[in-house]
Amino acid sequence: MTGADPRDRGGPQQPLLIVDGLKKYFPLRNALGTVSAHVQAVDGIGFSIAKGETLGVVGESGCGKSTTARLLMQLIEPDAGSFVLDGDPVGRGGVTVRELRRQVQMVFQDSYASLNPRHTAAQEIAFGLRVIGKDTATAEAEARQTLRMVGLDPDLYAGRYPHEMSGGQRQRVNIARGIALNPRLLILDEAVSALDKSVQAQVLNLLDDLKQRLNLTYLFISHDLNVVHYVSDRVLVMYLGKIVEVGPVDRIWREAAHPYTRALFSSRLSMNPALRVAAPPLSGDPPNPVRPPSGCRFRTRCTLAEDVCAASEPALIPSPLDAAHAVACHIARAGSGHSLAGALANAA
């Protein structure tokens, strides 16, 4: 299904969404209620999502990937940052935040907690449709239709409550609720992570199917690298509130440039008892996002860190070999002051 979308104003080259300078600090309050510190959840990130692509976001807990999703969804207000939706700036003079929200929907990780326990599947889906002004009967009918689209027979499932469904079925209802509002961007925040493997594969196939049929764009957040590799066109790697690397999935999988990305890949389980991982690529846990290290945030766990890494923060700059591939590492930039600077780029 490739009919022209009437909402597509900027043409295929115009990214669906451009995010710039996005920042969110969460205040930590002490017992007296005064702010004692901030969790630097997302610290000045910028990226764009092309129409029809799947942008994968990977990173460990505390890297800010879920906060980014909630910021895009306008569920929390950013401290700073601008959005451009299909060429139109969001906010003053451009499209409204309400309009942005209508074009973006989200599927959460916990299929149980994200469904109202007192609503049936059909009621849950119909709610959003009623919010955008449809009458109850129309909303109900469309909800049933959407259930069919996600592979649930409405005669069997429309009247079911969350506890009467399996995890996979519940997640299908969550997906149905998202697509019922006909969004252009669907954010999948660890949407398949909690599912059993056999069910996960079903839902991944469903997501692929829906993307083709509904002309959707996905922001796919997951900690599972294999799944991200499977579904994504481009990948964004985050570490402690910063983007450390972004680029086409095949390129990143072939030649990851950031030491963190490479460590993340080497941490993957081998899936082959004969080729077990011999030594862990990193030691320790990610640092606390309340007090991130100076300079490059990864330097405390990086085996290649030098003085320059503590002194200055590396900017996210495109690779000279591939403009779509950007890395935030002193090693990747010739003349940065790191002894290995430019060596990797030359080698490649």
Binding site: S198, A201, L204, N205, D208, N226, M271
Partner: peptide, 17 residues
């Protein structure tokens, strides 16, 4: 089959129904 591998990319997964 339904576990996503490195090599899965580009082909639909074969889930257990």
């Amino acid at each position: 089959n339904s576990t996503v591998h490195e090599i899965s990319r580009g082909a639909p997964l074969v889930p257990i129904p």
